[in-house]
């Protein structure tokens, strides 16, 4: 695999997402932008891929259960050299491999998502396998706050706690929105942290765009002596990084025009400059 310098700079990752979304005339920008720092921190400091091989049998697992944010993961995979420039520029072109929701046939994507509430349980199964092998592999599952409407998530949470899957960590992207509106209007979640706490997880709530804070939260949970699964509740902003997209749920569905693409790039360039 071609090696990059693995900086996972959030603004550059967002630019890659913008490039893909513009090239493919795709939607789901807002929910990709809210998980940029979460994925950057995981890839930069936590996930182990021996020989930079996405299929290494002893790798850690990153399961993107909220497949709608997959462009954020593609952007990271591009930095790892797992995706080339042509894959980014050719997003959504006829006969291409990268779909609008994650597909497990792409090396680096562990599950096929898009129907929500699946990846959590597959991640639980991967973590159970690691425990049975005593391999020390970590499993990180990223779910959306809207996604945890799904009952299967809570079946998996019971199972993970009952089986003391201490190397299983769920990271909830709490951006406060789901497809049709605010989570508080659609299906109130109240305290996600207390819910996972009650299911037997060790839980930390953190600013999901503060890389240092995220990193410390993950580290502190990893170093816990408890045998319980872990949950990070990452408070995030849907559309984070592009001022006119932030907390505007229409960017779950809106396609970029030449103008909005340019404006969004300007926003990001100002920040990274």
């Amino acid at each position: 695999m071609r090696r990059h310098n693995f900086r996972f700079d959030p603004q550059r990752l967002r630019m890659t997402v913008l490039d893909m979304a513009y090239a493919g005339s795709t939607v789901h920008l807002g929910c990709a932008f809210s998980i940029i720092e979460i994925l950057a921190v995981l890839y930069r400091w936590h996930l182990r891929y021996p020989a930079n091989n996405p299929n290494a049998v002893d790798r850690d697992y990153l399961v993107l259960s909220k497949g709608h944010g997959v462009m954020a993961q593609y952007a990271c995979m591009h930095e790892l050299g797992w995706l080339d420039d042509a894959a980014i520029k050719g997003y959504f072109s006829d006969g291409s491999a990268l779909t609008g929701l994650s597909d497990s046939r792409v090396p680096g994507l562990e599950v096929t998502s898009g129907s929500l509430g699946h990846g959590f349980s597959v991640g639980v199964g991967l973590a159970l396998a690691s425990k049975r092998y005593n391999s020390g592999q970590k499993t990180y599952v990223v779910v959306g706050d809207g996604e945890i409407n799904e009952g299967a998530i809570w079946e998996g949470a019971l199972f993970a706690a009952h089986n003391s899957l201490k190397d299983f960590m769920v990271i909830v992207d709490e951006n406060g929105f789901q497809a049709m509106g605010r989570t508080s209007d659609v299906m109130s979640l109240n305290s996600i942290s207390r819910k996972f706490d009650a299911f037997g997880f060790e839980t930390v709530t953190v600013d999901g765009h503060d890389q240092e804070a995220l990193n410390q939260a993950i580290q502190s949970l990893q170093s816990s002596a408890l045998e319980t699964p872990k949950a990070v509740i990452a408070r995030t902003i849907k559309g984070k990084g592009v001022s006119f997209m932030e907390n505007d749920n229409s960017w779950h569905y809106t396609r970029l025009t030449k103008d909005t693409y340019r404006q969004a790039l300007d926003c990001l360039e100002r920040k990274s400059g």
Binding site: G119, V122, V124, G125, L126, L128, F159, H162
Partner: peptide
Amino acid sequence: NAGIAEQNMIGVAAGLAKAGF
């Protein structure tokens, strides 16, 4: 015994199979 939670049970089986079980 995965409990009365069939959706999760299939997902767990998938994860186990992906890891070689």
